[in-house]
Design a protein around this nucleic acid. Structure first.
Lengths: 253, 253
DNA sequence: AAATCGACATGACATAAGTCAAGTTCCAAA
DNA sequence: TTTGGAACTTGACTTATGTCATGTCGATTT
């Protein structure tokens, strides 16, 4: 194809300071100088294809990763082989904290579609944070976000009906689409029904049926993985959004 | 009682270096000098009584806490008031990471019985970690442990039957008893059936029935909150311990 | 000792969601 | 273009677990 300059994608320079994901990603909330010093730490990582592993349970945990494009799922595995998806990571979102306990990844990380990530080596992050006090705050925020996400999922799995779970899932995807300046009411899911079911702790058939029901109720439109949300408020009401529904007196929302 | 010296328990000096919980607690794995420098950071905290809050959702998160005696539960709360217990924290275990995301606690922390804790102010931990590189590692390990615990609970809530959940819970308590050099097969639960049920994502009645069933099967003995484990292996088999049961060929354990 | 109350247990019954078994539909390989 | 198969849907049926109602136990107060 003509005389295009060859680019070695494994050694691309990436700069947080020039990245359009920076407000969603690791640097969110950091000051400009600190973000610039991140540039030396962040490494581009080769693209990974659908079903490829970014890391596996048991691998040495040497870095945390930021999704640039695509979507990656992380899942825990029990001794008897059951898997539970604990997160779907979209552009700008971080993964890899599951290796912090003992330096060994406790999760598998698998691409749902062709994806690219930035690699942030832990030792370099640590070295840098000795110089930048702000970076420690940042790490704390990131860790806190992970814990908070896990807790939301615990609440979902522990207390919600399957209907509430799917509504909650759709709202989560929707709000993350919005954060990325994509449409909040029309998007393509990266994950298979099976993945959604696993994540939500229900059977695939239940997910199928609920999609059908929601569609019948005119709340969403489903065309395979293409979702259109027609009644956002109806979804919010399902998960118990006390602001819009005023279900509970005294709820401060 | 005679001429006992008065002790103001709110200002007791506490030293990690002299604490018999240090191998279970924050200092686990740290070197002796680093542990000594922790002494300046750790504050004793007044004892809290049963049903008292150590902190509430919405409180400013200024510290992490280490349980000295007793047991504390942490729970998330949904917008519509549902609560999910995300952890029971025994002596030597840490809590408070739920405030890392934005400096505001996302959980409630409530004592299950009269308990005492050490307070580790975040700003002081941070200042100290600028001097001690080992402390950053330590924080990472602690965070990793929290994430790993949450993931275990996600697996439990997402994939296990109620029987597996209770077996898993009993084994978890048992192994933590053992860590503390208490009996692993005979202990008192600090939590009510209701708390266990909430934590495991099942109804109280289910917990009651399962306790009864396990007892009928001769696996455990139950006398109110006093539990005796009679067949540890049977419990392990329930949660799919592939080492002792060899259920699955090719399982590496 | 009686009364009270919360924690826990147990039986009867209801139901949300799982399982099983066909079916589509769509995409990708031949 | 055909073929194969994975992903998904839908219906019929089953079941684990929740809900409701009642009863017991044990600690604490009167």
């Amino acid at each position: 194809m003509g005389t295009l300059k060859r680019i070695d994608v494994n050694h691309l320079k990436v700069r947080c300071s020039e990245c359009n994901l920076r407000e969603l990603c690791f640097p969110h909330g950091m000051n400009v100088e600190d973000i610039s010093s991140m540039d030396a730490v962040v490494k581009q990582f080769k693209p990974i294809h659908k079903n490829d592993y970014l890391y596996r349970r048991g691998d040495a945990a040497v870095a945390i990763y930021a999704v640039r494009t695509g979507c990656i799922k992380t899942m825990t595995e029990s001794t008897n082989g059951d898997e539970q998806i604990v997160g779907f990571h979209m552009a700008g979102e971080l993964l890899g904290l599951d290796g912090f306990a003992d330096g060994i990844h406790a999760c598998n990380a698998v691409a749902l579609e062709t994806s690219s990530v930035c690699k942030l080596p832990i030792d370099q992050l640590e070295a840098l944070s000795q110089k930048l006090p702000g970076l420690q705050n940042q790490m704390r925020r990131i860790v806190g976000k992970e814990v908070s996400n896990d807790h939301k999922l615990l609440l979902l799995l522990g207390k919600m009906t399957s209907e509430e779970r799917l509504a909650s899932f759709l709202l989560s995807v929707s709000s993350r689409m919005l954060e990325r300046n994509w449409k909040e009411d029309e998007f393509n899911l990266s994950m298979a029904r099976q993945d959604i079911a696993n994540y939500l702790g229900v059977a695939v058939e239940t997910v199928s049926r609920l999609f059908a029901t929601f569609q019948k109720q005119g709340i969403i439109n489903v065309d395979r993985r293409h979702i259109t949300i027609l009644q956002m408020e109806a979804l919010k009401a399902m998960v118990g959004d006390c602001v819009s529904t005023n279900k509970k007196p005294g709820c401060v929302g």
